[in-house]
Design a protein around this nucleic acid. Sequence first.
DNA 1: GCCGTTTTCGGCCCGACTGTTTTCAGTCG
Length: 580
Amino acid sequence: MKGSNADIADLLHSVATSITLSKGNFFEIRAYNNAADAIEHSTTEVRDLWQEGKLAEVPGLGKSIQAHLDEYFKTGGVKHFETLLSKHPKVIYELIKVPGIGPKTALELADLGVKSFDDLGKKLDNGDLVKKGFSEKIAEKIKSGFLEHSNRDNRMLLPYAQAQADKILEYLKKGPGVKNADPLGSLRRQVATIGDLDFAASSDEQEKVYEYFHKLPGVATVKDKQTVVLASGVHVDLLVGKPESYGALLQHFTGGKNHNIKLRTNALKKGLSLNEEGVRKINRKGERVELVPTKTEEDFYKLLGMDMPAPEMREDAGEIEAALEHKLPDLIELKDMKGDLHLHSNFPIEHPSHGPGIDSIADIVKKAQELGYEYVGISDHPPAHRTETKEGIIEWIEKRTKVIQEIKAKTKSTRVLNALEIDILTDGTLSVPDEALKTLDYCIAGIHSGHRSGSGDITKRILRALESPYVDIISHPSGRLINERESYEADWEKIFEYAGKNKKIMEINSFPNRLDLRDDLVRMALKYRVKFVIDTDAHQVSEMGNMRYGVSVARRGWATKKDVLNTWEWKEFAEWFEVT
DNA sequence: GCCGTTTTCGGCCCGACTGTTTTCAGTCG
């Protein structure tokens, strides 16, 4: 849809690029880039804010840009922007998206006859650029940026990255004189996809730690002192700092970028300058003096007069303001989880609608007990409504209910719940008749077909499904499959508003390539007081350990324990679901 | 162009890397 936050951010970045090339005011350029970043990271659609006359709420949008956006939403374009953009070849606004290509390089490339992004790839391959006078090293740099851009979809999934990171951390902690070791960057912030694996360590024997790092199991090549490449092709970076300034190092390289920018801007106003070694005071002459090293991140933030936001929150999404006012939310933690409600077993089925699990209900329950859960819900897919008769579906459910009840009776420490994950059909009706649904402890409904219908359709489908008194939870609501399929373009505010008012729950699905709801949608849903469950959607018991990733998503969305039903004590949980 | 418990004018994050720069420009996170 034209006019999405991403579209507008793109447009403003293009304007900034154009002004750069026209040698305009440096700070005007920055203002446009800031505005673009703010919109890109806004958790609300800017179009909606405009409709409500609340554009000014987005930081970085002043009178001028607001007026331009007003014109944009009213007419579909901005005359002033079009004039600016037309001063330079159109292709540069595409080329600047390639890492390593900025405005200047993009213009140079355009002057050399690069016509499009694909054309750039062609000219890189056949050496045209070097022939026309581009230095080989720069061409090489652009090529790697081009590949990175083309493969941007193939960043590692967080769970895959984290599994490797856990092993590396374990190794690093045994290094010479190592006192601390932590992940950095997007890994530490638990972003859904990860590029490189970055780590920090503290030790008084820095050089020895780097030598030790180069011997990390699985290393294929040592690229430089701080970087090794694993056999899998994954780059691993390590920064070793002194223990007395480790907090500043961690803070600096955890980011995110916009969080740090705002932090440093705010600090400057108080006469403080921040870098990776600590906090420095600035004297009257504007000189940076008196470095105060910070041992922990808490110390670092304390010197700035604020509480420490969890790494997962550091995206400049309001956490700095909240930290200054000592109003940070008490984020949910993995140890709060008391059950898993979305699990698939291998219960026999003749006409499956979707892939069943590979382990038995008994094994799942056993695993739940091992994990210390107070309750566990088995939620298989019912038989396909197209190939199985209505009676057949009901019969299958009855058979399965019986088996679950037998296991339930034998299980002391963990309560076993009888559920299903049913389909929301293309017209919003459900794949299982009500008379069977009402026999369940709760019901999860999800979209498993017709993902590509337009925004209105998906919104209507979900809303219609939610109107059923038997539907409690919407599974993987936005339907994204990371690196494969984008989220549906649905009217999430409308869906969340309904859910918040009608006790309907949104799932945060911990499956590695789903992590759905997304963190930004969790944040949006919270505004409507929507409750969540965090589930693993495990199809084998080994996947039940993925819960931590759903918790990370919830934390990135600022969710607290009370927002997530499956952290609740059994009594309250049972009251909500009206089960015994 | 944006922004304001030190400013409605005069500031605007910080440092590193890379290339070919003999003191800086471009780009990135």
